[in-house]
Design a protein around this nucleic acid. Sequence first.
DNA 1: GATAAATCGCGAATAATTTCTCTATTGGAG
DNA 2: CTCCAATAGAGAAATTATTCGCGATTTATC
Lengths: 253, 253
Amino acid sequence: MSAKREKILESKARKSQEELMGAVTLENITSDPRSQTVPTPSLRRLPLYLRLLRDYQAQGRTVVSCTQLASDLRFDPTQVRKDLALTKVGGRPKVGYPIAELIAAIEDFLGWRRTIEAVLVGVGSLGTALLGYNFSLYGLSIVGAFDSAPDKVGQVVHGREIMPIGYLTNFIRQRGIPMGILTVPASAAQSVAEMMVAGGVKAIWNFTSAALQLPDHVLVERADFSASLAVLTRALAHGARSLAPTIPKKEVT
Amino acid sequence: MSAKREKILESKARKSQEELMGAVTLENITSDPRSQTVPTPSLRRLPLYLRLLRDYQAQGRTVVSCTQLASDLRFDPTQVRKDLALTKVGGRPKVGYPIAELIAAIEDFLGWRRTIEAVLVGVGSLGTALLGYNFSLYGLSIVGAFDSAPDKVGQVVHGREIMPIGYLTNFIRQRGIPMGILTVPASAAQSVAEMMVAGGVKAIWNFTSAALQLPDHVLVERADFSASLAVLTRALAHGARSLAPTIPKKEVT
DNA sequence: GATAAATCGCGAATAATTTCTCTATTGGAG
DNA sequence: CTCCAATAGAGAAATTATTCGCGATTTATC
Ligand SMILES: NC(=O)c1ccc[n+]([C@@H]2O[C@H](COP(=O)([O-])OP(=O)(O)OC[C@H]3O[C@@H](n4cnc5c(N)ncnc54)[C@H](O)[C@@H]3O)[C@@H](O)[C@H]2O)c1
Ligand SMILES: NC(=O)c1ccc[n+]([C@@H]2O[C@H](COP(=O)([O-])OP(=O)(O)OC[C@H]3O[C@@H](n4cnc5c(N)ncnc54)[C@H](O)[C@@H]3O)[C@@H](O)[C@H]2O)c1
């Protein structure tokens, strides 16, 4: 049976990857006993709740039920309850959850109370947009911007002077920056990512379509436009026939 | 037992939402017999394979194995095989899959062979970046840009003249545009989305953080920065202690 | 041609996630 | 004070997604 060895081979390949995969992106980095394996889908939904909760709070409300949140997000109420349970904030029957507490708990859970510093590399269209965006509500602060184009270096974009790419690694190292944001062309992504890693970043937020090859201890998160686009286009192209008529039927609002 | 009625209530809430949820975003729109319920995670991974396949092709290769793809993406080889099976393109043992065929099949599967027209509303930082991006490889073409700011209207951005928001609904209706891209401030998102729906779009690509309330027949897909950020920040904030040292240990490359 | 190595493909097993069911609280109305 | 409706919470069940195990196929090599 030559099949025996084959299994071993593919299995080995799987094993070595295991530490980076799926929900695991989080778990293997997590040794903090508080953080039980958090379901990644739940983790990704938490910012949505947070956003809504802030709205409610701005409207002067102090409590909110799962039912309300679920209805606004078109989620299942039970799912909302499960997700919120992660924060350990308890709700009261017939009333709901205390909004202020929940906001604080979610922010804490996500690490958005304490600001994380990041550098951004590639001040093109997208990089410029991100530089202009205020991430303070998301616990993020972009403290340095880098580019390789000579005409960009020295320019001030949204209050930050663009530095030459050659300074990147040292800047990260000296300041102990934990995160790099990648908005260079895909072709430059790997080499820039390696510079970031050389400087010591622990995580990379990758807006390019490149599949980065980096050491396992670096967490790479794709901010992938194409994934969500795929869901849309697939539905439009293959399901359009059954979509509702152009003039929408009246719905409950 | 008053509980009885309660169950009925929450169940009803769930039922009415069922048609919009999770993987279902796709399925309930899909009546095409070809398209069996496609696992959403797989669907979202397909663009990644496509991207790599195009690279391989540019390098002159004609076939590629799951093992190779899996290794480049740090996925499980079996998962890659399952995902590619969606395309019905068969691979040959010991050789792999024909790259050209696979590319065509994935493009077709995603609906990226035939261009879908879209309008973009909100030509700010992000909107401008998107307008400048070439989505032709993604089967998308932004054919109109709108904004409400008087000083923006009439400007030409990336070859497109910005139109006043008042023209939006008619533009969509007259041209039969199926998709709207939302890059306005969150506070304006709901009202702009309603204009899009009034014009007859079938899908909305929502870059804002707003939770849109729209009729069920409109497919809304979030292009959510905060979700992926949540994964990163949570890991950095709560798992940093166990992350590798600043100076990365040597790894296989 | 026989043999070995790589890989596909399929069905089974496992794991993760979502949804359901039931019970217990809570606040308000009569 | 009692009843009712709304809701949280916890565990079970169902669903969905991933991973495994195995046999079959193909190519290269001896
Ligand atoms: N613009 C969008 O809307 C959009 C959408 C989806 C994905 N993306 C992705 O984001 C990335 C950036 O897109 P963009 O439209 O901003 O591109 P861009 O060309 O406008 O900007 C790229 C920037 O990176 C700089 N750069 C190039 N090589 C570099 C290097 N080696 N080191 C440092 N800087 C370097 C360039 O000088 C330029 O300023 C791309 O990978 C793109 O695929 C962009
Ligand atoms: N800039 C980013 O990097 C970034 C990142 C994540 C999310 N977003 C989201 O994308 C959206 C846009 O962000 P931005 O940074 O481009 O904002 P922006 O303020 O730069 O642009 C918003 C644009 O929308 C226009 N607008 C406002 N109200 C409008 C209306 N009713 N009708 C038509 N146009 C209207 C404004 O005139 C402006 O041009 C926001 O919801 C933001 O949360 C942006």
